[in-house]
């Protein structure tokens, strides 16, 4: 990860034992190093969550910046012990992503086709990108709450109780949403099997 290091090495390991919440409260009381430490700790996770749902780097970066901005804004009002910072961020990010997906429903697929990188992209890379974009577009067709539950369960690998905490619903509701969401996703994706190269190539 050479890219991230250049700016990040400036942050000393002063906060190694501080919790996310400690850092957030330190930021609220005006310690500029706390924001750097929090960014180093949380931004990669937020960006990954957004990219998994949106399959578009530029959109994921915008969402990640927006989610972090909301974190800076909530800092002065954060009440210790009330919620986990990571849970709060998962919720904010998944909501921002479903907002984006909802807008995508009204846009024709070819309008949002992402330009390919100039890097020598082998066929396999292009195929992976096309597949993940197809998954994201399928997610966009689900009702918001189903898409969120499926994303948190299957893209983030979170447990049902964790998802229940993030979405503020019961574990039973999470189970029902993920089951229905996955069935719907499966039906949507079944039609794109051949196009995505799942006919001749054995599933991993």
């Amino acid at each position: 990860m050479p890219l991230a290091r250049s700016q990040m090495t400036a942050v000393p390991d002063l906060f190694a034992h501080a919790s996310d919440e400690d850092l957030l409260l330190a930021h609220a009381s005006g310690d500029p190093r706390a924001a750097e430490a929090l960014t180093q700790r949380l931004l990669p996770r937020v960006l990954a969550q957004a990219l998994r749902m949106l399959a578009n780097r530029a959109e994921a970066e915008d969402v990640a910046q927006d989610a972090m901005l909301r974190l800076w804004r909530i800092a002065p009002d954060w009440r210790r012990g009330e919620a986990q910072v990571t849970t709060w961020l998962y919720r904010v990010t998944v909501n921002l992503c479903t907002d984006r997906l909802r807008k995508r429903r009204h846009v024709a697929i070819d309008e949002v086709a992402e330009p390919l990188d100039a890097t020598p992209s082998v066929a396999a890379q292009m195929q992976t990108r096309a597949r993940l974009r197809a998954l994201s577009d399928a997610l966009a067709q689900l009702p918001d709450r189903q898409a969120q539950a499926v994303a948190l369960r299957h893209l983030e690998g979170l447990s049902n109780p964790q998802i229940a905490g993030i979405m503020d619903i019961s574990v039973a509701s999470v189970e029902s949403l993920t089951a229905r969401g996955k069935r719907a996703l499966s039906a949507i994706m079944a039609g794109r099997k051949a196009e995505l190269g799942y006919d001749d190539d054995e599933p991993a």
Binding site: L43, P44, A55, R131, H154
Partner: peptide
């Protein structure tokens, strides 16, 4: 495949 994504900011 999606879970394997680990983008670096």
């Amino acid at each position: 495949q999606a879970r394997n994504l680990a983008p670096v900011p």
